[in-house]
Structure formats: C-alpha cells, structure tokens
Write a protein that binds this DNA or RNA. Structure first.
Length: 120
DNA sequence: AAGTTGACTATTT
DNA sequence: AAAATAGCCAACT
C-alpha cells in the first residue's frame, strides 16, 4: 500500500490509544511528531483502509469532545455507539467529557496506574 | 505544477 | 452556548 510515512506515524499513535479512552486530532498529530498538523491526522484517518482493525479510529475525536462530522452520514452514530460500548459516556449534547476520558500517554505505570484509575 | 480540499483548531461574532 | 471566520499545511487533482 502506498501509505506516506506521515500516515504511518499517525496510525501508530492511534493504535496506542487504550480502550475506553479518547484522543483529539491535535493530540494525535503532536504525539506523531507533527505539532499543529491536526488536519493531517484527520486526513490520515480518512485514508485509512477499511480492514485496519488494529487502528481504533473511533477513539479519535475533535477538540470539542465531539465526533467530527464527515461527508457520509451514519458514521457519526456508529462511532458514538462504539465508544459507548467501550465505556465512554456522552452527555445530552452528544459530547464526551475530555477532562475525564482524554488519553494521557505514558503517564500510567505501576502504582500510578491505579491512582489514575480512581478518577471519577 | 498550481489550485483545491479537508474525520482540525483557536478566535471572533 | 452555538455558529461563523480565519489560519493552517500536507495530500489530492
């Protein structure tokens, strides 16, 4: 497949998002070594092949904590359903509490993990 | 090769 | 608080 190294980096970061957590496009881009290139993160996911099960694209949302609207309808509802299935809650306006579900990479280790788990 | 596009975001109505 | 505006930059045509 003809994937740019840029895409590969972004996909790698997305693949690292733990279950039940979400990340913003800007966050993914920054972690991929592309600060300020949030749009490219979204572009990379758009170009993502359908059989890429190892990339949890549904855990990437926009900075407002909402599922980004895309060209084809129906996907938004699906993404929301998938996140709910993982334990991510949405409020009445269909938004995720980023302060609670935002993924903090590399932070949880050993006993610190248990402490982070206590948030609620 | 130049112009358009977009699964974004911060700022301003 | 929600909607429109402006800035952004790589991929796509």
């Amino acid at each position: 497949m003809t994937a740019s190294p840029t895409y590969a980096r972004i996909w790698a970061v997305v693949a690292a998002i733990p279950r039940g957590r979400v990340a913003t496009y800007g966050q993914v881009a920054a972690l991929a070594g592309l600060p300020g290139r949030a749009r490219q993160a979204g572009y990379a996911l758009h170009a993502l092949p359908n059989d890429a099960d190892d990339v949890p694209w549904h855990r990437v949302i926009n900075a407002r904590g909402e599922v980004s609207p895309r060209a084809e309808p129906g996907w938004e509802g699906l993404q929301r359903a998938m996140l709910i299935a993982e334990g991510v809650d949405f409020d009445d306006r269909g938004r995720v509490d980023l302060g609670r579900y935002r993924w903090e990479p590399g932070t949880l280790h050993g006993s610190a993990k248990r402490e982070a788990q206590r948030r609620r």
